[in-house]
Every structure is written in C-alpha cells, then in structure tokens.
Simulated assay, not measured.
Amino acid sequence: MIKEFKEFAMRGNVVDLAVGVVIGAAFGRIVSSLVDDILMPPIGIMLGGVDFKDLKLVLKQGVLGPDGKLTDVTLNYGNFIQTLIDFLIIAVAIFMVVKLMNTLKRKKAASPDIPPAPTKEEVLLTEIRDALRSKPL
C-alpha cells in the first residue's frame, strides 16, 4: 500500500498540481495585497475617504457577545466588495496566463518540424545508390 501511494504521489500530475496550489496560494496573497494596499486606498479617496472594510449595515445594535461585551450585528458588505475585487483580479490574471499558454501551444503545434539535413554519409550513400541504378548489368 505504501508503494502504491508513493507511485501515486510521484506521478507528474500530482506533483504539478501540488506546485500549482502552492504558487496559486502565494499569488492570491500578492493579489490581495495589491487590492488592499494599492487599489482600494485611491478608490476610497475618490469616494470621499471611505475605507471599504468599514462599510457595513448594522442589523442590530448592542447584542451581548460570547465574550460578555456589547457588539453590533452587522452585514459587512464593504469587505465583500473588496473580496470580490480580489477574485476578479485573480480571475483575469489566470485567464491571461492560460491564454498565453494556449497561444504558445498553438504556435508550437502549427510550426512543422523541419527535417534535418542529410549527413555526409547519407549524401555519399545516395550518390552510390544512384550510380549503381544507372549502370546496366
């Protein structure tokens, strides 16, 4: 059973998938930082100094929380908007990478492989063959 698991885990697709997940997680953090730290502050300023994380709709005020403190029950739609922007940027970036890879695959498939030039030995053997064919027996 251990041998079968080792064969399964070391197959190319599984390793490629694991690398893709790790790189995707790191890429997600980069995009989140891009949205949080670079894109949203100027957008917030354009909207009158609004921080999207602070946008919320208070459903009920002064509810006793599990820690014994009074808290508000809120609908945090600003955080949802920010997460949605994160997703859209990640989706567009992944689309562009996939599109680039597909374009490169098509170019590779479209360009026919040029056969290599014959070696000196092949040329010489061809000349000998042709010379033998032209001589009558």
Results as ranks from 00 to 15, higher is better:
residue 61 Q to F: 07
residue 24 G to I: 03
residue 7 E to N: 11
residue 42 P to L: 05
residue 44 G to E: 02
residue 117 A to D: 09
residue 107 K to D: 14
residue 29 R to K: 13
residue 35 V to H: 02
residue 15 V to L: 14
residue 69 K to Q: 11
residue 16 D to F: 15
residue 72 D to T: 02
residue 5 F to D: 10
residue 86 D to M: 10
residue 15 V to F: 10
residue 62 G to V: 04
residue 40 M to Q: 02
residue 86 D to I: 07
residue 50 V to L: 09
residue 25 A to C: 07
residue 44 G to S: 03
residue 123 V to W: 05
residue 58 V to M: 04
residue 6 K to F: 07
residue 121 E to T: 09
residue 6 K to M: 12
residue 95 F to N: 14
residue 85 I to D: 02
residue 120 K to Y: 08
residue 6 K to G: 01
residue 58 V to K: 06
residue 14 V to S: 06
residue 57 L to K: 03
residue 60 K to V: 12
residue 71 T to E: 12
residue 86 D to L: 04
residue 28 G to R: 04
residue 40 M to Y: 01
residue 82 Q to S: 14
residue 102 N to H: 06
residue 48 G to A: 03
residue 104 L to W: 05
residue 91 A to Y: 15
residue 48 G to Q: 01
residue 94 I to P: 02
residue 5 F to I: 13
residue 55 L to M: 13
residue 20 G to W: 03
residue 1 M to V: 06
residue 126 T to M: 13
residue 115 P to G: 06
residue 49 G to A: 06
residue 37 D to W: 00
residue 43 I to Y: 03
residue 32 S to W: 05
residue 27 F to Y: 10
residue 95 F to C: 06
residue 26 A to K: 07
residue 79 N to S: 13
residue 87 F to D: 03
residue 6 K to C: 00
residue 106 R to N: 14
residue 59 L to H: 02
residue 32 S to A: 08
residue 47 L to M: 13
residue 103 T to N: 14
residue 86 D to E: 11
residue 44 G to I: 03
residue 129 R to C: 01
residue 137 L to M: 09
residue 129 R to M: 06
residue 100 L to K: 08
residue 102 N to V: 00
residue 18 A to I: 07
residue 79 N to Y: 05
residue 94 I to R: 06
residue 28 G to Y: 04
residue 44 G to F: 00
residue 51 D to H: 11
residue 28 G to M: 07
residue 104 L to P: 01
residue 82 Q to P: 03
residue 79 N to H: 04
residue 49 G to D: 02
residue 127 E to V: 11
residue 102 N to K: 15
residue 93 A to S: 09
residue 101 M to N: 11
residue 85 I to F: 07
residue 79 N to Q: 12
residue 1 M to C: 08
residue 34 L to C: 05
residue 87 F to N: 07
residue 68 G to H: 02
residue 19 V to M: 12
residue 93 A to N: 03
residue 10 M to P: 00
residue 127 E to N: 13
residue 83 T to S: 13
residue 117 A to Q: 11
residue 19 V to D: 01
residue 132 L to S: 05
residue 88 L to P: 01
residue 48 G to R: 01
residue 7 E to S: 12
residue 86 D to C: 09
residue 54 D to K: 14
residue 22 V to M: 13
residue 91 A to W: 10
residue 107 K to E: 15
residue 111 S to P: 00
residue 29 R to S: 11
residue 7 E to Y: 04
residue 90 I to T: 10
residue 105 K to W: 03
residue 30 I to N: 01
residue 130 D to Y: 02
residue 72 D to C: 05
residue 121 E to A: 11
residue 13 N to E: 11
residue 71 T to C: 08
residue 68 G to P: 02
residue 46 M to H: 00
residue 136 P to C: 05
residue 12 G to S: 15
